[in-house]
Design a protein around this nucleic acid. Sequence first.
DNA 1: AGAAGGCCTTCACAAAAGTTAAGGATGTAC
DNA 2: GTACATCCTTAACTTTTGTGAAGGCCTTCT
Lengths: 194, 194
Amino acid sequence: MLSLVLDGWACRYKLLANGRRQITALFLPGDLCEPFGVMPHVVDQGLAALTPAVVASVPLGAVQDAARRWPRIAEALWWDLLVAATLEREHIVSLGRRSASERLGHLFCELHVRLTMVGLADEDGFDLPITQSDLSDLLGLSAVHVNRSLQDLRQTGLLALRGRRLTLYDIDRLRELSLFEPAWFHPRRSDALP
Amino acid sequence: MLSLVLDGWACRYKLLANGRRQITALFLPGDLCEPFGVMPHVVDQGLAALTPAVVASVPLGAVQDAARRWPRIAEALWWDLLVAATLEREHIVSLGRRSASERLGHLFCELHVRLTMVGLADEDGFDLPITQSDLSDLLGLSAVHVNRSLQDLRQTGLLALRGRRLTLYDIDRLRELSLFEPAWFHPRRSDALP
DNA sequence: AGAAGGCCTTCACAAAAGTTAAGGATGTAC
DNA sequence: GTACATCCTTAACTTTTGTGAAGGCCTTCT
């Protein structure tokens, strides 16, 4: 079963024995939230909606048929797998080597790119429908510290977050501060497909 | 080009603009260090040997031919992709929600399982050929703190690390302390392959 | 209107981790 | 054997992050 998010935000997460939660991946509208749906036995983590969400599920057989018949489908699936893996690696880098503010900034830059690709962001911001507690589970921080770092970013004049709207006042400076390198995000489509 | 580690340890890593390094994946003998060798254009990260290493490289065409001719090859490739993804997700969990000692313990438990599978560990330990500084880049810590936490684990009587040999005195207790759940590591081989 | 719950915000304090620096051990090159 | 380099170890100190607790704002339910 292949699952595609049509609306809303979802995530993959793991709950540790001590009760802590770590979100390992964030799924926005347009994302496949089960890229390994092809091998459903091995899911070691939970899947959850962070907002009310609409998800389309396609039976595995249909996916395989479609992929065989239309190469572009197969190509798109590979593509998605690859982008997801890249995002995951960048997540590791953030958690390991970026400070709290840098993690927040980097996440916002990433979301801005991803949401722009699906038409859900404009030049100076986007809708951020999840709680600060969700952000903390995603970034490996405490909720209090997320709030603190958010205040820092606000006071530096880099962004505003009111209601559910995130406004980015100076994306270039935010990218610099967060060590964001958008290059990895737009790799060329490869012509060498398996 | 598909690359297989035959001997030695290697890693994928990213260097940040501020000079910090984060290792995103560790490759032991028997691991494919380019699971996405199938799409070589998109490597956003570096590949490095952590010890003198021997790597076999197989041209992409040969891999595709072999995969088509012998389904078990294709199956094994999928398998490797899946295990690597699971390890990567667990890496995220460690960096986000485990303390320094827990990260070390978890890594040692993971290495013990992986190295046992390729015959490079015995019941009570294995060879750990990388430096504490490498460990710190892998676990998102400072080298000094890795050393500190290592001392803690030693003094708790959980392990010894002399020369390059790591001895685990009480694996069960170490697993408990590190919130290690080996379940994810032995998922059933799926019968539904693409 | 009032009560309740979720979320955001702030504070004071505690714990964890980073930094800088120094010395010791070990191994390699000459 | 000596010099050099790398790695390990420890210490003192600083910074970052976590914890527990409290109050405020807002929405929803009754």
